[in-house]
Design a binder for these strands. Sequence first.
RNA 1: GCGGGUGUAGUUCAAUGGUAGAACGGAAGCCUUCCAAGCUUCAUACGAGGGUUCGAUUCCCUCUACCCGCUCCA
Length: 599
Amino acid sequence: MADVKTNDLMERIVSLCKARGFVFQSSEIYGGINGFWDYGPLGAELKRNVKDQWWRSMTQQRDDIAGLEATIIMSPRIWEASGHVHTFADMMVECPVTKKRFRADQVEESSGIVYKFSGAKDAAGKASEEAFEVMVPLGKPKESALKVAKQFYQSRGLPAPEPIDAGEPAKVEKSTLYSPDSGARLSDPRPFNLMFKTFVGPIESEDSVAYLRPETAQAIFAQFKNVLATSRQKVPFGICQIGKAFRNEVTPRNFTFRSREFEQMELEFFIRPDEVIEAICGDVAKPTDPGHPGAPQTNWGWQMWHQYWVEERIKFYESIGLPRTTLVEYWQKPEELAHYARATVDILYKFPFGKKNAQGELMGEELEGVAARSDFDLSQHQRFSGKSQGVFDEDLKAGWAKLTPEKQADLTKRYYDTRFKYLTKTDERPDQAERMAKEDAAGLAKGNYIPHVIEPSAGVDRLMLALICNAYAEELAPDEKGKMEQRIVLKFHPRVAPIKVAVFPLLKNRPELVQKAMEVRELLRPHMTVFYDEGGAIGRRYRRQDEAGTPFGVTIDFETLGENGPDQKDTVTLRDRDTMTQIRVNIKDLLAVLLEKVR
RNA sequence: GCGGGUGUAGUUCAAUGGUAGAACGGAAGCCUUCCAAGCUUCAUACGAGGGUUCGAUUCCCUCUACCCGCUCCA
């Protein structure tokens, strides 16, 4: 797709989504609400299919994952343990020039001369009346203050601003009002919490504050022990969940891509720490080649499991119609990683609106993050709840007893070190951390440890948008007279297509055709979504279904009735959406043929 | 949050200080033997609120939504 066309392309996709009933703006009749979107009839079907495919691939297709469905509102302490409250309940100030945010209570003190401006004029006649202050260090000339002021007014829409002085410069000592970056006067402190807040119960007080979950993952951790106790699973195993999450994004953007209310499909896959693997198996398998490492093995360390899940997830995307070439596997750089993450791979899709690299190629936007989160989450909940989140592992206990004392000491030391590092990083006092880490390390001999986790976390709505973008095609197709006309078609994989098959009588003014078509509809209806349509010419009906992404059309014609010979009796035309080719299928074989294609 | 742009039918667009028109789409009917054919009929819109004015979809202000750039995305 040509460069200049990408926005147009996205706009056409958005229009089609509205026109065909995939996506509507939330509360549209009241002017809409920023960052919220509804799914229309076809969108709702598509979404169900996507979630069903994921759920099935996680639970029904394997026996080492259990499902969970937790509430959206949970104890606020969960978000304290996860770090969400801590990170974002703070008052923040912003530098108006660099746009960088600082915690209001952590701005460095600075001293210098403060220059004040009442506004600025532009040679072109534009003006700004917004006041601006900037501090420059003692001894620096006024020019450096002017430079920052010009930057500020440029960001306010004046290309060549002339700032207007507002009184004499003043000397200021040890102030926290100015940006450590630019010297510009910081914004007033304001809370910056991306979690939606609400109150449980009729009284709105500090004691009743609760949050809409900003991710579904924490519920899985919080219910880890319950699932473990009831599901007859043991490590390594996973818990998966699909559900709504809410983030009060600063800027929702790009259609449904970044919404404030969205749905996640998350798996937390719990594994043994590498020290435990080593105690049981004698060694720890690490990745040697890229690509899928095959069926899980007992001696896999966290890196093998991580790679395994990255490849499993990509396989999933391919299975619902996103070609490998549209996906990007992005390994986060060490400085991009969250502090608790050992590695994170983002699986990106090349959305038309996405960023481009220097060569003008789309770099992709995130569909899913596959993170190796160590034992951070369960450890946090253990500390905050005071309830053990560890597991007992018989294989470890048995294996440990067979190790040499040197090996035992070595593994104990390594386990101790990582636990100590975690505990000190999360602000435990050094003597406390030492005591707790020792306890944890001593647990190995008894077969106890806190599992580590690999977290593939996908966004349903983003995936839907990717599927729609990927499916969208504008083609030329011949019309009735053989003239080439544009055809718009959504080439969904039959697995996710909202409507699987459309059934048409060739002509609606022949009762025999209509009657037979209705019979075929009833035949298929228990097994898949079927759409019956008799309005207008047959070609029009095909095109309508093309835009809905319906992969198959079945037409009942005069051959079906046996009017053109007995050998064609009870056969129908099966039309393929993508190739527009038609084959004849006997009605008695139709269901089997279609089920084969849509599964 | 900052700056810029836009908001007229389901979609894409037009016109206008005296309350709006098309194309495509939709519905109904006739017709139609496989890819948006034809004919007839019908329905549907000025994002919201203020202001100026005799009168505002049009001019002004505020809000809101969408798009673009920056920022944000824990």
